[in-house]
Design a protein around this nucleic acid. Structure first.
Lengths: 185, 185
DNA sequence: AATTTCCTAGACCATTTGGTCTATAGCGGA
DNA sequence: TCCGCTATAGACCAAATGGTCTAGGAAATT
């Protein structure tokens, strides 16, 4: 029963490719070749085809990010430090893989006008992330938790876009430095 | 000699569509239909085809953003106020058109792995924007102009992504409020 | 041993993709 | 009037797209 094994392989492969070239920039052909699986497998595990696969892949990657955020803030002493640790994790990932994949949500966002299901997915994931950050801000007693969470989310997205554009972890380090200053100052 | 007229129409139409659905999400067919022009016109004005058109469209939109930044900072009393005005302009645009197009650079970024020319274009435009912001930061005597410019660029990109995802100007207003606080506090 | 269930395998399809090429319309100058 | 240039017009092409469908292999259940 390699069922789940191959299903997972499709999700992981698709996620990687979508985050590199965007939803519309990757064909099923390429995904199946990379996963070394035939088309029959794809449509067995994902009867909804490309959209359903992209949905699963994005939610999977989105969950990874959410868990990563949780861990970074768990071990932090204040809200800003959680942000710093997040930056460092994303930068370390970039440097380890020698490439910066886009934020999983961003990689399906441009397909949203044509695929309403993906817009919903993007919204769900963003809400999850923001909700998690709000909880952390509350936990640390930040004055305006909602504003602080949105602010950090915004800055992480900005750093991520720049890092993706430059294919470099530098923007994450830049943001980390900035957050550190906010703690000290 | 409607030459330049139709060339411009292609650029404007392409820019709008690319910013809505991304480089790979729009076909030449759709662009030509929207511009009401035949394929011959496209390949006459842009022998390089889709890539050359996307390049021109992105640089055109990128220049618009650069000029807009210049105007917002020209009439500002401090660096943060320039950022606030920029947010307000982007939000007003969103509300006026009842839709939020993506940052022009973001809309071609995902095609960069397959089209090196577009990666170069994205880099050029980002550099132009950052350089402009650095100049403004220097003009206002900001302590670390480079860091301030990068920081604002990052936050604008983040707000833009969130605004695009939500199809709402709210993130721009949120960032504006944040920048205002930084001035007052 | 027979049967059923799960999953793989890939041929096949209509449609669309970006791109090339020829024909020609319109117009300014000779 | 004829020429020559600019630009439009769209037929046409090979390749790729996402998707459907039938056939069969492998393993568990009976």
């Amino acid at each position: 029963m390699s069922s789940n094994e191959n299903r997972d392989k499709l999700i992981r492969t698709a996620s990687r490719l979508f985050r590199s070239k965007g939803y519309d920039g990757v064909g099923l052909k390429e995904i199946l070749a990379a996963a070394d699986l035939p088309k029959g497998s794809l449509y067995y595990h994902f009867p909804g085809g490309k959209v359903e696969l992209a949905d699963a892949a994005t939610r999977w990657a989105g969950d990874w990010v959410a868990r990563m955020l949780g861990q970074c803030f768990e071990t932090a002493m204040c809200f800003e430090e959680g942000g710093v640790k997040t930056c460092e994790t994303l930068a370390a990932n970039a440097e380890h893989h020698n490439s910066v994949p886009a934020c999983p949500v961003v990689s399906i966002l441009q397909a949203a006008p044509s695929e309403p299901a993906l817009r919903k997915t993007a919204e769900d994931i963003h809400n999850t992330w923001t909700a998690g950050l709000v909880r952390q801000a509350e936990r640390f007693g930040v004055p305006d938790p909602h504003a602080a969470a949105l602010s950090l989310h915004m800055r992480l997205q900005g750093a991520w876009i720049l890092a993706y554009a430059q294919q470099s972890g530098a923007p994450f380090h830049q943001l980390a430095a900035e957050l550190r200053k906010a703690t000290a100052g």
